[in-house]
Nucleic acid binder design. Structure first.
Lengths: 347, 347
DNA sequence: TATTAGCACTCGACAAATTAGAGTGCTAAC
DNA sequence: GTTAGCACTCTAATTTGTCGAGTGCTAATA
C-alpha cells in the first residue's frame, strides 16, 4: 500500500494530537480539528489503511486510534520537522554551561536539571570520559596516620581520588618524591599502557620504598579500572508521575526501578560515539520495563575524544521534535562555550 | 481518662495490625484476631475511649479505626519493644561497612542502599562532616594550561577538589612550593580560623606570586564555604510507590519533589548532634508534603566529632520498631569496625 | 473511481441504583 | 463491668442504564 500525501497528513495529525492529549483520536475529531478538506468518512478509510500498515492501532474496538511505535518511527525518520530553540532557551543553556564549565561534576548535574526543566521529561547525564584517557598527573596526599589519598588527573580533566591504606603514612617529603617518580613514569601515557608489565618493571627499579610503592601501584591500577565507573546524574524523575500513561503505579514502579540502578542507566545510554541524536522508541528498547518509554540520546563532546552521553526518557508519545531541538541546542552551546574559552586562552 | 492495661493492648493491636495491612481495623476483627479475652462490644467501648483521647481516628463514620499521629507517638515513646537485629543482618551490615570504610563516599552510598534494602523504605544518608573541621593538608595540582585543582583534606577525612582558573598554570615546582606555604599556614587550623584577616595577612607577606596566591586563596575560601555543602545519597525511592497510602499519584509526586531537592533533604535530616534515634511522625514534620510520612533518623559518628546523618522515610504506619533496630544495628557496626581498625593500627 | 452521507453497531466512560459487609453506638440483660 | 443484640450508617463493589465517540459498511453522488 502506498503512503500518499494525505495519509501522511492524517498520521501527523494523529501523532501531534496524541502527543498533546494522550487520548485516542477518531476520524470525526480529525475532520473537525484539522482542516484537511476531506470528510470524516474518507479519513476513516485512510485510517483503516494506516492501521493495516501498522502505523496506528486501536486500544480497543470502537475507540479512536493511537500511533504505534512503528508510526512514531516513521514520523521521526521522515516527517518530523526540526524547530530551532527559542533565543531565551539558548541563552539559558549558554549561561548554565559557562557557569559550570570548570567544574565537570557540577556541569553535568546542572545540565541534567536544566534539560529536565526545559523538556519536562526525565534526564540522565553521564560524566564525560575519554576514549583513550591519558594520565596528566598523579599526586599522593597524606590523609591520616594510615591512609593516603591518591589523586589522579587525566587529560579529560577528570580528577579522581582513591584512598589507600598503608602501615604508616610517610612524611610529605617522601610522598612528594614518590609522586614525582610516578609522574615521570606515567605522565602522558594512556591508561591501557599502564599494565602489569610496566608496573612490575617499576617495582623492580625502585626497591627502596618497595612496599609502599607496591601498595600505591596497586591503587593506581584500581583507579584506572574504576575510571570506567562513570558517574551518572538524574533529574526530573518525578515528571514520570505526571504522565497519564504512568498513573498505573505498577508501570511507574518498573521505571523507577530502572532509574535507580546506575548500571542500567549506563546500559541505557550505551557507549556509541555517534555524535548525532538517536531515538529509541518503545519496544525498540530491549529492556522490558522501558517498553512504554522512548529514549532520546546524544553524545556531547567536551574536548578531544572526550565524550559523555545525555538521555531523555518520556512516554512513547513524547514530543520528539522539541526534545531533539533542546539536545541539539545543548550540544551546540557546549561547543560555543568551549570555543570561546580556547580562543580566550590563545589570545 | 486513664489509659489502663487493656486500652494499651487494644491500641497496640490496632497499630500492629494497621502497620501490616494498611486497612482500618474494627472491634470485631480485634476480638477475633487478638486473643484479649474480651468481647467485641467491650473493645468497642474501649475504642470509643481511645478515640476520645485522640489516639485513634475513624477515616469515616462506620469504618474501623486507624492510629493517629498521637497514637503512634505514644506507642513509640512508651510501648514499643526493641527487637535485636538478626545475626545475618548484623553480619551483612558489618561486611558492607568494612568493605567501604576507606572510601567515605562509597560508604555512604552503600549504606543508603543497604538500609533501604533491609527496611524497604526510602533511605537518605548525608556525608559525615566535622563540627569543627580542621585542615590537614592542601595540595595544588595542575589540570591543564589554565586550570589548577586544589585538593583539600580535613581531619574528617573529607577530600574535596576545586578547580580554579588562572592566566597560566605554573610549573609543578611552583605549585608544590605554594602548596607548602599554604600548608605551613593553614595546617591544623579550623575552618573558622581561616577568615579574611588571615588571608589578607598572608597576601601581604607573599607578594612574589601574589596574583596566583590571591586566586588560590579565594578558592580556598570558596571550598571552605562549600564544605558545608554536604553530599546526600538516596536509595529506595521507588519503595514509596509500593505503599497504598501513596497510590494516589499526586501525593507520591509531592514526596518525590521533596526527595529530588537536596536542600530539602538536608533540612529534613537537620543538624542535631544528638546521637540517639529520633522519630518524627506525620504532622510533627513541618514540611507540608511530608505530613503523611514519618521520618526516623539518627546521627552516626565516624571519628572524633565527625557526624553524618541517616534518615528513613516511610508512611506514618511504618514499622518503627524494625527501623530503629536496623539503625541501631548500623551505628553499632560502624563503631565496631572503627574500633577494630584503630586497634589494628596501634598494634 | 474516489468521495461522502447515512446508518447500524460496538464499546468504554459515567452516573444512578442496589446490595453486601463491616463497623458503630446504644440499650437492656447478665 | 461486661456482653448480646439490634438498628443504623457508610463504603465498596456490583449492576444497570445511558450517552457519546468511534467504527465499518453500503449506497448514493460528483
Amino acid at each position: 500500500m502506498i503512503l500518499n500525501e494525505r495519509k501522511i497528513k492524517i498520521l501527523e495529525a494523529i501523532i501531534s494530537d496524541y502527543i498533546s492529549t494522550a487520548e485516542p483520536i477518531g476520524s470525526r475529531t480529525i475532520a473537525k480539528k484539522y482542516d484537511l478538506g476531506i470528510s470524516s468518512a474518507t479519513i476513516r478509510n485512510e485510517m483503516s489503511d494506516l492501521e493495516e500498515m501498522g502505523l496506528i492501532v486501536q486500544p480497543h474496538a470502537s475507540s479512536g486510534r493511537v500511533p504505534s511505535d512503528k508510526g512514531y518511527r516513521l514520523y521521526v525518520d521522515k516527517f518530523m520537522r526540526q524547530k530551532d530553540l527559542a533565543e531565551e532557551q539558548m541563552l539559558f543553556l549558554h549561561n548554565m554551561i559557562s557557569n559550570n564549565i570548570n567544574q565537570i561534576d557540577y556541569l553535568i548535574q546542572e545540565t541534567a536539571k536544566a534539560i529536565s526543566m526545559l523538556t519536562h521529561y526525565t534526564t540522565i547525564v553521564s560524566e564525560p570520559q575519554s576514549q583513550k584517557t591519558i594520565l596528566k598527573h598523579l599526586q599522593l596526599i597524606p590523609l591520616d596516620e594510615t591512609s593516603i589519598v591518591l589523586v589522579l588527573v587525566t587529560d579529560g580533566k577528570i580528577v579522581r581520588n582513591h584512598n589507600l591504606q598503608v602501615k604508616e603514612t610517610p612524611s610529605i617529603d617522601v610522598l612528594n618524591k614518590l609522586s614525582n617518580i610516578l609522574n615521570t613514569y606515567f605522565q602522558g601515557h594512556s591508561l591501557e599502557e599502564i599494565d602489569i608489565a610496566t608496573v612490575t618493571k617499576l617495582k623492580r627499579e625502585f626497591s627502596e620504598h618497595s612496599e609502599l610503592l607496591s601498595e600505591v601501584l596497586t591503587s593506581v591500577v584500581e583507579i584506572i579500572q574504576s575510571i570506567d565507573n562513570v558517574q551518572v546524574f538524574l533529574s526530573g524523575t518525578k515528571n514520570i508521575l505526571g504522565f497519564p500513561e504512568f498513573s498505573d503505579v505498577e508501570k511507574a514502579k518498573g521505571i523507577f526501578q530502572t532509574l535507580e540502578e546506575k548500571e542500567l542507566l549506563i546500559t541505557l545510554l550505551g557507549n556509541s560515539s555517534n555524535e548525532d541524536v538517536q531515538i529509541i522508541i518503545g519496544n525498540e528498547n530491549s529492556m522490558e520495563q522501558m517498553k512504554d518509554c522512548s529514549l532520546i540520546k546524544t553524545n556531547y563532546k567536551l574536548g578531544n575524544q572526550i565524550y559523555g552521553s545525555i538521555g531523555i526518557i518520556g512516554p512513547t508519545r513524547m514530543d520528539y521534535s522539541q526534545v531533539v531541538s533542546v539536545l541539539r541546542g545543548l550540544v551546540k552551546n557546549i561547543d560555543v562555550v568551549l570555543k570561546a574559552l580556547s580562543s580566550e586562552n590563545s589570545s
